[in-house]
Amino acid sequence: MTATALRASPGVDRASLIAVGAAVPLALLAGLALRWSGALTAAIVLMGAQQAVRLALGNDVLDEWAPLTAGALLLCAELAFWSIEPRIPAWSQPHLALRRLTTVLLLCLLSAGVGAAMLVAAGSSLSGGVPLELAGILAATGAVAVLAYVARRSP
């Protein structure tokens, strides 16, 4: 990711990008060694930050690799959080680990699919207007309502 960012944004201070790139594995290692979710979150944020820098300083063309990057980020996060869970002899029941791994991979694929759909929607040549604005407001309100509902429904 660091190499891609360096290649895509030659105008940026290379030392800063390399420093951010080096901080990612350090944060990951610290999170895994100390079983600290904060460090893992920081590592994911740093990875996202690199992409943000690359995108912000690059051209205005949509990055078609973004859905795959999103899937990879989720895979990293899932595996990292799996690693810091309390150690239980899970491999005494290998089918459990296999089932979970399959779920994670499917989730990553689904995420990539959703990302691709979002990218297609973002790249469409729809012009603004009242109906589109209305749809956006309804979607945002719906998202907040759904989140409030799922947060409340559990005891």
Partner: peptide, 17 residues
């Protein structure tokens, strides 16, 4: 803030989960 849809794509998997 940056006006880049790709960043929303990066955030989408976490929101989906």
């Amino acid at each position: 803030v940056l006006g880049r849809a790709e960043l929303a794509v990066l955030a989408a998997p976490f929101a989906l989960v």
